[in-house]
């Protein structure tokens, strides 16, 4: 059956599609689905979050069932299937970071942003998330900004500075 067309706002930019094609090229021709993690990441980076239409679009692009792409999007923590704030701060609170004060830092952030973990500030600027081990425990405590930028050796002062720069 013919698929309904996505309207333009749900499509991805040519740049993103080119990046997805680079991912697709990494895998055997009959294994396009392997690129779904990369493709969802690229789509999320462009659009801010993975709304269902976007997941379906990516799934169609990779010729896989939409529900299979949705499974991936909901299995891996770094995909956002709910719209987050402009700046998603993911603070690692796992044991090594906790030993270095991540718990206290978390409390500080919650108080400062007036939100709890998993919540977004009213102005839509910040989302605060509790993260699991990021494989950088030597630099604890640390956080990720919008999935891709890591800030390490955090202190309350450094957190203040960071938040200041994120408009």
């Amino acid at each position: 059956m013919a698929k309904p067309d996505l309207n333009d706002s749900q499509r991805l930019s040519a740049e993103s599609l080119a990046l997805i094609d680079v991912e697709v090229a990494k895998y055997p021709v009959d294994q396009k689905q392997s690129a779904v993690m990369g493709a969802l990441r690229i789509a999320q980076t462009e659009c801010g979050w993975l709304k269902p239409e976007l997941i379906e679009y990516v799934a169609d692009y990779l010729e896989m069932p939409a529900i299979a792409a949705y499974e991936v999007a909901t299995f891996y923590n770094m995909y956002d299937t709910q719209r987050p704030g402009r700046h998603k701060i993911t603070l690692c609170t796992n044991l090594p970071c906790m030993l270095m004060g991540a718990g206290e830092l978390g409390e500080y952030l919650k108080k400062k942003l007036e939100i709890g973990f998993g919540e977004t500030t009213e102005d839509g600027r910040f989302t605060l998330k509790e993260g699991e081990c990021m494989g950088a425990c030597g630099d604890a405590p640390m956080c990720l900004h919008n999935n891709h930028v890591m800030h390490t050796h955090l202190t309350t002062e450094k957190v203040d500075e960071l938040l200041e720069t994120l408009k």
Binding site: S34, G38, L40, R41, Y76, N77, M78, E132
Partner: peptide, 10 residues
Amino acid sequence: LHAHLGYGAY
């Protein structure tokens, strides 16, 4: 050789 990025699953 290719790199594949995980996305948050231990």
